[in-house]
């Protein structure tokens, strides 16, 4: 049991750790220059009176998935649908909607999939908890395995 299970536990824990890290980094590989360029572009297309609102617009649009080109945010995507969604977010921000209200509005229509970071609720609980759970189980097995005294007569 021992070596094989250690190897397995290590693999599973490393896998879950990298998987959850990768999920978190999903769309943050943007170099600063490009980001500024995109921000300048959006400031021209979607002018706001206050920089705070402008910032909120950028936050929301980078957090929303374009459903056509699924690994792009609606801020980055050139798909016509992404433009419609940007327009909708812009309109709603200009009319005093909060960030949560806008996100809920879109989730009601397109589902949790539109959020790069799905909300924590009953339907997404497995998604959030599972990697952690596997990791915990791995550590538990590891713990109990190392606690056990080596038996006599066994090789290694």
């Amino acid at each position: 049991m021992s070596r094989a299970s250690y190897a397995l536990i290590l693999c599973v824990s490393l896998f879950t750790m990298t998987a959850s890290l990768a999920a978190k980094d999903d769309h943050s590989y943007v170099d600063a220059g490009l980001l500024r360029l995109a921000q300048n572009k959006s400031q021209q297309l979607y002018p706001f009176e206050s920089p705070a609102l402008q910032q909120r617009f950028e936050n929301i649009t980078t957090e929303l998935r374009c459903l056509v080109c699924q690994n792009e945010s609606i801020a980055d995507s050139n798909a016509p649908l992404a433009k419609d969604l940007r327009d909708e977010v812009y309109y709603k921000l200009q009319h005093g909607y909060s960030e949560d209200e806008i996100k809920n509005y879109l989730v009601d229509r397109y589902g949790q999939f539109i959020l790069f970071r799905p909300a924590f609720n009953l339907s997404t609980v497995v998604l959030w908890i599972f990697p952690l759970l596997v990791l915990m189980i791995g550590f538990l097995i590891l713990f109990f395995q190392t606690q056990r005294k080596p038996r006599h007569g066994n090789k290694t």
Partner: peptide, 13 residues
Amino acid sequence: AKGTLAMDLGVYG
């Protein structure tokens, strides 16, 4: 024409 009803229906294509 503008796809507003489609957006209410969650149409993405």
